[in-house]
Simulated assay, not measured.
Amino acid sequence: MLPPGSTIGILGGGQLGRMMAVPAAQLGYRCIGFAPEGDNVAGDLCADFITADWDDAAALAEFARRCDVITWEFENVPVAAVEQLPQAKVPCPPRALEIAQDRLLEKNFVEELGGRAAPFAAVDDAADLRAAAARIGTPGILKTRRDGYDGKGQWRIEAAADLDSLELPGDSLIYEGFVRFEAEFSVIVARAADGAVRFYDSTHNEHRGGILARSALPAPAIVGKQVEEARDLARKVADALGYVGVLTLEFFACADGPVFNEMAPRVHNSGHWTIEGAVTSQFANHIRAVAGLPLGETTPIAPRIAMDNIIGDAVENAADYLTEAGCHLHLYGKEDVRDGRKMGHVTRLFRNAEQA
């Protein structure tokens, strides 16, 4: 158990690290962030922040020396950087990052545990893509195996004829068959080092342009029918990885059961509602897990909850939310406003039918 006054290191400088630093401070911890130069908004709330490249061995060593335990706030932290750190200070194995950073490894890993993903195939050249499209069918989606998020690094292929005009954006790609679904949902699980787990209620996730726009509770009935099967897979993934902290798996709710989409070894956008909407937020439970503290209750505190992302220049009117009752505004302090960038979020708690 990490005593109060200890230091938690956070790899990454985004809003997730920023929101982790708040419950860490409430529990008596200091946070130090580490990330390359950029819009490192986590540094606003950390006690200190080291700005250096991921391959700067001296900076990583100094960061590790000053930390008692180390975690990360996004899944694209280079595995090589994490492996340079004293592993005794990193409660979650780097293998979780390694698998989540490669869509092909991720889907193979989940299927080996009994999960079901959309049909997929590795693509390294045009011949691979034609073979994949012929076997899996169209429509389908061509994706980069690494680094894509929020709809980036993805190309929809409606028909085989589209392949004639498509110029491959490099190699190390994956082709996935199109999934016909009734709803999208996520399973967020907090796992302690001793294997104890807590699940959050699964939200109905709505995407626009490949970016999560809204997460809401309660989710449609079909999600409720499939959530236990999805949770069972999430538990298997967490156990197989020896995971410590908050882990998220995203699913499609389909007529014949849940289909795995992707996983994120971190706190997740679809769990932002938990800050005001759950007894213990996902951020507090992540800090508890890596610090060796008991996990907190995850029960929602209102019958209906909705979280909306504030994206791009919508942030200019964000102050309007402050006039709404039961509305909680979070702005991330980002200076660079651009299309598709998450600038903040707003959570509404509906405690009765009239408010809803």
Rank of each mutant, 00 (worst) to 15 (best):
P265N: 14
T299I: 10
W273Y: 06
S270Y: 14
A255R: 09
A264H: 13
K236G: 08
M263L: 08
P220F: 15
T299N: 11
G271I: 01
R266H: 05
D256R: 13
N261H: 03
R235E: 10
T298E: 07
F260K: 06
G292V: 13
G292T: 09
M263C: 13
P294R: 01
T298W: 14
K236H: 12
L295A: 06
N285P: 05
A278N: 04
D239A: 15
A213S: 02
L293P: 02
Q226A: 07
D256M: 03
A230I: 15
P294V: 00
V237E: 12
H286F: 13
L233S: 10
A264S: 09
K236T: 05
A230K: 14
G277H: 06
S270R: 13
F283L: 02
H286N: 13
G271M: 13
A253H: 08
P220T: 10
V259D: 15
R214N: 04
A284W: 00
I287L: 07
P294G: 01
A289K: 02
T280C: 04
A253C: 03
T280F: 01
H268E: 02
V227T: 12
G224W: 09
V246S: 12
P218A: 04
P258R: 15
F252R: 15
F283I: 14
G277C: 03
V246K: 10
F251V: 08
G271V: 03
G296F: 03
A289M: 01
G257W: 07
L233F: 11
I275W: 12
G257M: 06
Q226P: 01
A216L: 12
S215Y: 07
E250R: 11
Q282W: 08
G296C: 01
A219F: 01
W273E: 00
A253S: 04
H272M: 08
H272R: 06
V246Y: 10
D239E: 15
L295P: 04
G245T: 04
G224N: 06
L293S: 01
A264I: 02
G245W: 02
A302W: 10
P294H: 00
P265C: 05
A302P: 06
V227W: 09
H286K: 14
G271K: 13
T248G: 15
E250L: 12
A216Q: 11
L241W: 08
L249D: 03
A264F: 14
R214K: 09
A291Y: 07
L217G: 08
R288M: 02
A291R: 05
N285G: 11
F283C: 07
V259N: 15
F252C: 12
S215V: 04
L212I: 03
A240W: 11
A264V: 10
A213D: 00
Q226E: 01
K236C: 08
C254E: 05
S281F: 02
N285D: 01
A221R: 00
S215L: 11
T299S: 11
H286R: 15
E276M: 09
I301T: 10
G224Y: 10
L249S: 07
R266I: 14
L247K: 08
P300W: 12
A240G: 13
G242E: 13
Q226W: 05
L241K: 13
A213H: 04
D239K: 05
